[in-house]
Amino acid sequence: MSQSQMNILKIENIEKIFEIKVSAFKSKNLYALNKITLEVERGKTISVVGESGCGKTTLGKVVSGLYQAEKGTIKFHGQDIAHKKPLQRGLLQKDIQMIFQDPYSSLNPRKKVKDILEQPLKIHTKLNKADRMQAIEKTCADVGIDLGYLSRYPHQFSGGQRQRIAIARAIILNPELVIADEPISALDVSIQAQVLNLLMDLQQKLNLTYLFITHDISVVKHLSDYVAVMYLGEIVEYGTKEQIFSHPQHPYTKMLFLAVPDIDNPVLSEKVLETGEIPSPIDLPDGCYFAGRCPLKDADCEKEHPPLVEKGDQYKVRCIKV
């Protein structure tokens, strides 16, 4: 298969703009996603990282259909889904599923586990009751939910168990793409490892493709194949995990890595004080958005906005200094 056939999702020049009211009569545009281009390969994990406000969650929501993009295309199975609401996507929607951050709010508290898992089957398949039950049992075995728990309600479970239920709901329709938006950050450390292992096992078993949205760099390193670093609605660096982690080139990526606490290298260097803070995404400068925090900045950086330059081997970076 050629490269393009293996890519199940092609995101091209996606823009998502929110109108923000700044005063009673005036509103301004906030570019939550600014010309994002990304391809996702079947069976691989692509992680999107960045600080809060960089647009990573918005990207997940646009792909899943919770938001509609203003411009650009998202090709999934050759069809453009960027401007379609979930109901207009028809059968395609079944192949894109989502896992949310907080398993306390993503499960309906008034439904039993069985009903939560049965709902997608009722909507998207023509299975009869017995077949649905069979599918539920199979999925429960895959994610490690005891069948005796099926008639319980979400509040009777711990956070880790709930996240398993949310994962079961996401995979029960045999999707191709699973968008996981911070799926472990609400969980305890020992439970995080359990859920990460589960996600990786399921990927192997079901040939799942993950769009993994997170701020946790060590998790990204652990499970990604490709990494996209986002800053203020844009991708600033993209590459394979090896490229990004062994030779990070964009100053923002380097800054992020410097700030990550590491038990194997527990030094807190004074350099972290220079990292500054993500600016408001409204009224962005003409030049590089990162210039205000960048140690390499000079006059050229403020002249024009740097493009995302392909440096070969799928590696891309948005900085004129590298």
Partner: peptide, 12 residues
């Protein structure tokens, strides 16, 4: 059980 930055494991 922490994912480490300097080593890669398939399973945690």
């Amino acid at each position: 059980c922490l994912p480490r930055l300097n080593e890669e494991k398939t399973r945690l």
